[in-house]
Amino acid sequence: MSDARSLTDIKRDLATGVRQMRTRYPTSRSAIMPALELAQQKYGQLEGLTYQAVSELLDVPEIWVFEVASFYSLFDRAQTGLHHLRLCTNLSCMLRGSDALMQHLQDRLAIKSGETTSDGSFTLTAVECLGACEMAPALMVDARYHGDLTTDKLDGLLASLAGRPAKEAT
């Protein structure tokens, strides 16, 4: 489905938002990050023609756009699941059992960290510190944080997310 989106479509979808972002900065280049963020919010991930669309809308070289997209870990350059589970595995969470939670999630979803379930429901990623150490172990589901996790809580969370689109769940 996403392959069918034409350059014209993408540019039309993003034009107003990108123009608005552009006004916040003295240079076009500064608006690349917010433009990519906008594209990802709209389409779920960044796709081939998005880079060209952003480059044309901002009148900057496409390589500048790709440089940014490939540096920052929150930009998804491949299709992700309906829900993205980002489990913090850094020190404060590790000390409170995030390794066991990661194992549990991998077993339950039958995928490894970095993979997406075959039905496209969930992507699972081990991430660095989320800045939620007071509620460790913590997990980011789509855009929202969940803390003080246990395996039971995770199971409840997975059940509540199943089949619901990301926007509705957050």
Partner: peptide, 23 residues
């Protein structure tokens, strides 16, 4: 200006590069 997942951007010169739309 919303970051996009890079610890290094907490370093001040990297943060400024990031606002300028660079790595």
């Amino acid at each position: 200006h919303k970051g996009a997942g890079a610890y290094i951007c907490g370093e001040e010169t990297a943060l400024l590069e990031s606002i300028e739309g660079k790595r």
